[in-house]
Amino acid sequence: MLHIINQSPLNTTTLDTCLSTATGGDILLIEDAVYAATKGNAAEAKLKSAMGKFKVHVLTPDLEARGLGDRMMDGVSAVDYGGFVELVSNNKNCQSWL
């Protein structure tokens, strides 16, 4: 399953809930959730430790828009909107964690 997250992990518990509830699969961070994939943010360790269970992707245009294009943490895969489409089509189902 593809899990789409759009909220900052520093402001909401959405990422926490997804990481502790979902069984695994792909996670795509879009909009304000891209802050989760940046080096040195307080949620970095949390996301790192989830990487065995999930494959984590970040939407590059959203990261670049926020001035953090050069701060992506290791182990995260960068995708554009085309990659977003592929993630949706390659997974059997998807869920937006609103």
Partner: peptide, 19 residues
């Protein structure tokens, strides 16, 4: 909110990929 922009860019990319 960014939702409508994200949705539009997703839709455009999907169409470009032949979906």
């Amino acid at each position: 909110h960014q939702a409508s922009d994200s949705a539009y860019l997703f839709a455009k990319a999907a169409i470009e990929k032949g979906h």
